[in-house]
């Protein structure tokens, strides 16, 4: 197993994510699905923009805080060619819109709601995610 095993910070971070999703749910009655919230800004509808901008602004503000005070939160030695990374981004963008959600909407929110759609989604993206990581790392040498 990896020497980078960090179960406690992972649990704490996860609990914060769960708390954030619960604030959205019980406060505003909305699902905290990030691909849906952000995707809605790319096809904006009148009266449905401000809360999305605020949520994304909150995400970015957290990022700014980390840049200033905890830059190690972004530390990564993953090496992928830019074109491969761009293609990966396209797949994530297109796939989450086609499949109505990502790790937050289907993962955190959907599983907590016991949604069969979300369970099917999570099982699928975990399987293809693992397959893609294994193939890219070992068969393509990091592509």
């Amino acid at each position: 197993m990896s020497a980078d095993f960090t179960p406690f910070s992972a649990l704490l971070g996860g609990a914060l994510i769960g708390l954030a999703a619960s604030v959205m749910l019980l406060g505003a009655g909305r699902v905290a699905g990030i691909s849906g919230i952000f995707g809605g800004l790319l096809a904006p509808r009148a009266g449905d923009v401000a809360w999305r901008l605020a949520f994304v602004g909150g995400l970015l503000a957290a990022g700014v805080g980390a840049v200033l005070f905890a830059p190690s939160a972004f530390a990564s030695d993953l090496v992928r060619p830019p074109l491969v990374l761009a293609l990966a981004g396209v797949l994530v963008g297109y796939g989450t819109q086609l499949g109505n959600g990502c790790t937050s909407g289907h993962g955190v929110c959907g599983l907590s709601r016991l949604s069969p759609r979300s369970l099917a989604s999570v099982v699928t993206f975990m399987l293809t995610g693992a397959l893609a990581a294994v193939v890219t790392n070992h068969l393509l040498g990091g592509a």
Partner: peptide, 14 residues
């Protein structure tokens, strides 16, 4: 399922 599959592939690569 197709959307989730594509998302997973991009996630696993990037």
């Amino acid at each position: 399922l197709l959307g989730a599959a594509l998302f997973g592939i991009g996630w696993g690569i990037g």
